[in-house]
Nucleic acid binder design. Structure first.
Length: 393
DNA sequence: TCTGGGGTCCTAGGACCC
DNA sequence: TCTGGGGTCCTAGGACCC
């Protein structure tokens, strides 16, 4: 079996780059994309802004403190989507084997493309330049035998970088990196690892190789693939299927924290409408409806319920979300509320489940009505006590 | 004026059935 | 009267990514 050439191609400061194309005057200036209202954060920012300490995820007011001359622009997702398509189409002209990872990055299998190239590095430099000429987008390319190493590689040199990680060099190249750079170890796990003296990827690697019990407990199932990831023995199969959503949701931070029943219900209504419309557009039905809230202390709580038959009907989504809200969160002061439809399926794969009761009345009742009645039965009536519980009483 | 919104995947406990 | 274990589904919460 031969080694594959997997690339991770990452567009540099993509949202900012798009805005620069719309308005070349802002090029080279400190720019942040995001919205400025309550709870507004920096979605992404230009390299100039980063020199001031501005980072994505940072509250916008803090970014302005750090960089008073910061140019703040709202997110124009439609335009980014258009440029994103141009990017993927460009890559697909070179290889059909492309896995879209997000709006601004993809994995591509270049094994066959590179096979007969005398100077692969030169090829990738040309690729990068051609992408720039055609779309005016800048990218970093990571090249490695696996997806994980390619992803790690593309992060090493930005912007317009090209980094190759060969299998034999992988452990040496990753070992010095801070543990937080490990793709999959985030801002919760990294500090916990650092607390136990694990500062670099190399530190983690050595403990994993020694079958360290502490690390095993901390990492769970992930523990068993860490060494393979670092050594270049992990997944190199791309997922070529187009995006198939498993859930579709919509949430919003309220203008101010509130427990006002009417205001929250109105918000739930518009969130439900949006969810319903997007599910219809994607041609998806879902049978689990979830409501999520965030309280003023940022504690997130969610409640969900599964109905017998999937739906994307606004009325059912709204009624269910309201019922869940009333049952669990009425009177709670909340900061954010969201509605999500989960366990999405293709309507063609759905077999309608009918209880005998439903069947008898099916002629007169719409599917929506049946679902709402089922919901009422599930949420309003106390659960039947099981025999074992009756005995206890 | 502290900390968005879109997702995915994993874990763990309880219900329920055999 | 005391009390099995295996498997699956549902639900809640949390970590992570862009």
């Amino acid at each position: 079996m031969s080694v594959k050439v997997i690339c991770h191609i990452d567009l540099n400061a993509f949202f900012v780059r798009c805005e620069e194309l719309k308005n070349p005057n802002i090029e080279g200036k400190p720019v942040a994309i995001g919205h400025e209202g309550r709870g507004g954060i920096v979605s992404t920012c230009s390299y100039k802004a980063r020199e001031f300490g501005v980072r994505s995820g940072m509250p916008m007011f803090k970014a302005k403190e750090l960089c008073p001359s910061l140019i703040i622009l709202p997110v124009d997702f439609k335009y980014y989507q258009k440029k994103s398509h141009e990017f993927f189409n460009f890559v697909k002209r070179t290889t059909k084997l492309v896995e879209v990872a997000s709006v601004d990055e993809c994995y591509a299998d270049f094994t066959n493309v590179i096979k007969d190239k005398k100077n692969p590095l030169k090829f990738f430099e040309n690729f990068q330049q051609e992408l720039y000429k055609e779309t005016k987008l800048k990218c970093s390319i990571g090249i490695a035998p696996t997806k994980f190493l390619a992803k790690m590689a593309s992060d090493m040199k930005k912007p317009m970088g090209i980094t190759i990680i060969r299998k034999k060099d992988a452990v040496d190249m990753l070992s010095p990196l801070p543990i937080g750079d490990f793709f999959g170890i985030g801002k919760k796990t990294a500090p916990r690892l650092i607390n136990t003296g694990i500062n670099t990827i190399g530190d983690l690697y050595n403990l994993v190789k020694n079958d360290d019990e502490n690390v095993k407990v901390m990492m769970g199932k992930f523990f068993y693939i860490i060494a393979d990831l670092i050594e270049g023995k992990s997944n190199n199969e791309l997922d070529l299927e187009p995006w198939d959503p498993k859930s579709i949701g919509n949430s919003t931070t309220l203008v101010e924290d509130t427990d006002d029943f009417h205001e929250i219900k109105q918000t739930i209504s518009s969130l439900s409408k949006e969810v319903s419309e997007r599910c219809v557009k994607e041609n998806k039905l879902g049978n689990t409806i979830q409501i999520v809230i965030k309280d003023p202390e940022f504690k997130v709580k969610n409640k969900s319920i599964k109905l017998a038959n999937p739906t994307n009907d606004y009325r059912v989504i709204y009624d269910t979300a309201c019922k869940l809200y009333e049952k669990y969160f009425l009177g709670t002061v909340i900061r954010l509320v969201g509605v999500t439809l989960q366990n999405l399926v293709d309507p063609r794969d759905v077999v309608i489940q009918m209880t005998f009761f439903d069947y008898e009345q099916h002629e007169e009742q719409s599917q929506t009505k049946l679902l709402i009645e089922e919901l009422n039965r599930k949420l309003d009536k106390p659960l039947l006590m099981r025999a074992s519980e009756v005995k206890k009483k």
